[in-house]
Design a protein around this nucleic acid. Sequence first.
RNA 1: UGGGGUGUCGCCAAGUUGGUAAGGCACAAGGUUUUGAUCCUUGCAUCCGCAGGUUCGAGUCCUGCCACCCCAGCCA
Length: 559
Amino acid sequence: MSEEIEKYPPNFIRNIIEKDVQAGKNSGQVITRFPPEPNGYLHIGHCKAICLSFGMAQEFGGSTNLRFDDTNPLKEKTEYMESMKTDIEWLGFKWKEERNASDYFEQLYQFAVQLIESGKAYVDSLSADEIREYRGTLTTPGRNSPYRDRSAEENLDLFRRMRAGEFADGEHVLRLKIDMASPNINMRDPAIYRIRHAEHHQTGDAWCIYPLYDYTHCISDSLEGITHSLCDLGFEAHRPLYDWVLDNINVNCHPQQIEFSRLNLQYTVMSKRKLKQLVEENLVDGWDDPRMPTISGLRRRGYTAAALRDFCRRIGVTKSDNNVELALLESVIREDLEDTAPRVMGVINPLRLVIDNYPVDQVENLTVPNHPKLESLGERTLQFTREVYIDRDDFREEANRKYKRLVLGGEVRLRYGYVVRANEVVRDASGEITEVHCTYDPETLGRNPEGRKVRGVIHWVSTTEGCPAEIRLYEPLFTVDYPDASDQDYRDLMNPDSLTIKHGFVEKSLAEATPDDHYQFEREGYFCLDSRHARPGHLVFNRTVGLRDTWAKIAQQED
RNA sequence: UGGGGUGUCGCCAAGUUGGUAAGGCACAAGGUUUUGAUCCUUGCAUCCGCAGGUUCGAGUCCUGCCACCCCAGCCA
């Protein structure tokens, strides 16, 4: 059903792939890969890459491999691999093969030997600082290392001994012999192996030399028969190197690297370094904090996989810098939940409403639809009682005509219930209203009163039949739309009000909610149970996103 | 100042071999509505970074500018 809907609108990468397929390139096959480094959690920027790589393969009947790019044992952990798999599966994608770059360590080593033998790689014994000096600058060419012309025999011997662990970290490095005067800095004899006496989460202590990205990635792609290797623009200047390596070793598959621009989203940060810092400095409640742009955070917040996929389709794929508004993300989840989330009632800022002429112990069961349009979502039972909670924002002692809620002396309908008239308020010692007393019209259940119009409908929860619930409201994590663009440290730009915890009440049917359920609290927004904080008997709801609120705009203009 | 990229409505983004500017989000105005939600209708770039040129005709071709982004890890 969704196959047609989930197709990407035209974009330059799809155009390229389409032409390749039509031309019969790669026998018409499309094989992609998603190659995360397991050094953090996946975020919505990765989501764009995942949807694209898996999506392109899907559209053209191909397949996608998941490959952990684990060439840096110092930064990677298996914990991250697990979370990444969970997130990708949750997003709805299935990889064909699960691989690790470390699976290819032996082959990578043999290719390096090949390169040395053909005089295209050499062991350099310059220090890291010296290598940097020799590299030159953006505008001045580099100089050849004094070790550049070692014989193949000597290089082979040194490289073997590097592998054998005879040298300390940093003593030597294996470099490609390309061109120290290249205007592209990446081509100035890039290092492809470094010595790291470190335990690797996959290979243990089998290796003490580890290949670098530029060397590893293209060969891994080739070994897996990848046809289109999609990555972000940051690797554009590395493409000549990607191609150089594959052109200079003996492989028969040369994938095409195509770069697209990364996603920039307003009011958040996207670099793994910063997200990690937020977690480690306890500035947020873990990688899956509902305010985080991580896939796990968005999931916990209540975003659905379908909405995220839709989002990635709507933002498009180009090479231009982009700054996507939060409004688009919000609109996409509202649109998804509009047709799928059952309606319920929850009061966030409770104010007690007493219906003086309603029988004290009476409980009236009202069978009501779960959705105003979709009968398929079924019905549920509400309990109407003498005392209910309404939201403080839905009552005013006095108000002008534009205010369509409960006003002293005026009428309003309690959603699915009766029409009530507010008669008086009760205050506490500080003057705050604690109760509103009213009377109801028994003739108004399921029908409008005669001779007068009731303009408003408000939601409510029985004080005796409803359940207390903690309700968590979220605002953006940052106060500025582009924290990365600021001169200030992004941590100083964090929004102190990004999380507000309220103590409200929800209707009884919510007692059995699970974190996988999405609800619309009528007139409030979309909510889901928090997977971390909710416990049996202790309901905690996250507000995924509020409903579109045109009244808020009107009310604001009044002030 | 070297190299690589990008510039189409507030944001994202389509624009086939040049033929006379899609769509989404946002916004605005109406209508429906027991959610000020949803839904429906309507409006929203004489203009495609700028300046020239080629052409009957250019966002699409040519020339020259301008702006912004990325690259100097033994990170990915």
